[in-house]
Amino acid sequence: MLTYFRQRYPTRIEIDKDGKIIEVPLPNPFATEQLHIALSTDGLHWTALSDNKPVWQQRMRDPYIHRGADGIWRLVATGGGRDAGDRRQTGPVFMYATSPDLINWKFEKSLPLMKDFRDSSVAMVRNIWAPEFYYDEAAKEYTLFWSSSFKDAGWKESRLYYSKTKDWQTFTPAKVLFAPPYSVIDGTMIKDKDTYYLFHKEEEFSPRTGERRGIRVATSKNLEGPFTIFEGPLNKGQIAPTITEGPSVMADPKGKGWLLFYDYPMADHYGISSSPDLFNWKIETDIDIPADARHGSLSKITAAEAEALRKAFAGGK
Rank of each mutant, 00 (worst) to 15 (best):
S163N: 04
L177V: 12
K115N: 14
T41A: 02
M250G: 09
W146E: 10
K106C: 08
Q89H: 03
G214R: 11
I243G: 06
V184H: 04
Y270L: 04
Y64V: 13
F117A: 12
S183D: 03
W168N: 07
N52G: 03
S40T: 08
G79P: 06
S297F: 07
P233F: 00
R12S: 01
G225Y: 04
W146T: 11
A218Y: 06
I185H: 04
V55W: 12
W258F: 10
V184S: 09
Q238A: 13
L113A: 02
K166H: 12
I15F: 09
P265L: 05
S183N: 03
S120Y: 08
T172I: 08
L35K: 07
L260A: 05
Q89I: 10
E137W: 03
E141W: 00
F227A: 10
K53I: 00
D86M: 07
D83H: 14
L111G: 04
P247I: 06
S275I: 05
L234G: 01
K151V: 02
Y196F: 15
E108S: 10
P241T: 07
R87V: 15
K317E: 12
K140D: 05
W168A: 09
E284R: 07
W155S: 05
G81E: 06
R208G: 00
G19S: 05
T242I: 11
G296P: 14
H45R: 15
P27K: 14
E231R: 14
F199N: 09
G315S: 04
M95N: 13
I185C: 04
I37S: 07
R87W: 01
P276K: 12
R8F: 11
A303C: 00
S274F: 04
K221F: 00
Q169N: 14
K193M: 09
N235P: 01
I272Q: 03
E132R: 14
G210W: 05
E305L: 08
G80M: 03
Y262D: 02
F261Q: 11
M1D: 12
A218I: 10
G80H: 05
A314K: 13
R208N: 10
I229A: 10
N127V: 06
G214F: 05
Q34C: 03
G43N: 08
P54L: 13
A312T: 09
W258D: 00
S148Q: 04
E203H: 13
Y161V: 11
A139Y: 05
P247F: 04
A314L: 06
P10W: 12
R159G: 00
D277P: 01
E224P: 03
F5H: 04
A31P: 02
Y161A: 03
L223T: 10
T11S: 09
N104H: 15
A97F: 13
P226I: 03
E305Y: 08
F94Y: 14
I229F: 00
E305A: 07
A38I: 02
G257N: 07
T143K: 13
L144Q: 04
A251L: 09
D286Q: 07
H200M: 04
T302N: 06
D70A: 06
P131S: 03
L35Y: 11
G71S: 08
E284K: 06
R88W: 12
E211S: 15
E23K: 15
D192S: 14
G255M: 02
S220E: 09
T47H: 10
D42A: 07
P181S: 13
Y264F: 15
F279M: 13
P25T: 05
W258H: 08
R8H: 11
I283A: 09
A179I: 00
D167H: 02
K191T: 08
D42H: 09
A308G: 05
